[in-house]
Amino acid sequence: MGYSVTVDTDKCVGCGECVDVCPVAVYEIKDGKSEPANSEECLGCESCIEVCEASAIVVEEN
């Protein structure tokens, strides 16, 4: 079972916390915003959601 990762770029402030906390490197910072460049690697741990102060990340089961 996989996960779908979405970042709301209107909310994202580009702090990079999700990049730092993700154990499987799902996120990259591009143009000052977080982007789920490797969303197929997502484990569904939701660590990124916990550290995102802007509430810009949604992780859903496929």
Results as ranks from 00 to 15, higher is better:
V51Y: 12
Y27K: 08
V19Q: 08
A56N: 13
C52M: 09
D20A: 06
P36C: 04
E40M: 03
D8N: 15
E17P: 01
Y27A: 02
V21N: 02
D31Q: 09
C12A: 01
V59R: 06
C52W: 12
N62L: 14
P23C: 05
N38T: 03
D8R: 10
D8C: 05
G44C: 01
K30Q: 11
V58K: 11
C15M: 15
A54M: 12
V51F: 05
E60V: 08
C15G: 15
V58A: 05
C22P: 01
S4V: 08
S55C: 05
G14W: 06
C45S: 10
E28N: 08
E46T: 11
S39C: 00
G14S: 13
E46C: 00
E28L: 06
G44H: 11
G44S: 03
E41H: 14
D8Q: 08
E17Y: 15
Y27D: 00
I29C: 06
S47M: 09
G16H: 04
E40A: 10
C42G: 07
K30N: 09
S39Y: 05
E60H: 05
A37S: 14
D20W: 13
V13L: 15
T9M: 06
I57C: 01
C22I: 10
N62V: 11
Y3F: 10
A54N: 11
